[in-house]
Amino acid sequence: MESKRVWKSAVIGYGGAYNMGKEHASQMMKAGFEFAAVCDLDIARAEQAGQDFPGIRTFTDVAELLAQDDLDLITVITPHNTHADLAKRILESGKHCIVEKPMCIRVEDADALVRLAEQKQLMLSVYHNRRWDGWFLTLQDLIRKGVLGDIFHVEMFFGSYQRPRDWWRSDKRLSGGAFYDWGAHYIDWLLRTVPGPVRSVRGYVQNRIWHESTNEDHIDCILSFENGAFAHVQQSSIARLGKAARRFLGTKGAVLDNGEGHLTLQTEENGVQIESKIPYMPSQTMAYYSNIADHLMNGADLEVKPEQTRRVIAVLETTGTSAAAGQELPVPFE
Rank of each mutant, 00 (worst) to 15 (best):
R310Q: 11
Q284R: 10
I274P: 00
E303W: 06
Y280G: 08
L316T: 08
D301V: 15
V312K: 05
A287D: 04
E307N: 12
D301M: 15
A293P: 00
Y289L: 12
V272A: 09
M297D: 03
Y288K: 03
Q308F: 15
T309V: 11
P306N: 12
Q308N: 14
L316K: 07
D294V: 01
I274D: 00
M286P: 00
V272S: 04
I278S: 02
G320D: 12
L296N: 10
D294M: 04
Q273H: 02
V272M: 05
T285H: 05
P306Y: 03
T321Q: 12
E317H: 04
T285C: 05
R311V: 08
M297C: 14
L302A: 07
E303D: 15
Y288T: 05
T309A: 11
A300G: 06
E303H: 13
K305M: 14
V304C: 13
Q284T: 04
L316E: 03
P279W: 00
D294E: 15
Y289I: 01
V272I: 11
I292K: 01
N291I: 06
Q284A: 09
R311T: 11
L302K: 10
V315N: 05
S283V: 04
K277C: 04
G271N: 03
H295I: 14
Y288A: 12
I274Y: 00
K305C: 14
I274E: 01
N298F: 13
R311L: 15
L296K: 09
A314I: 05
I274W: 00
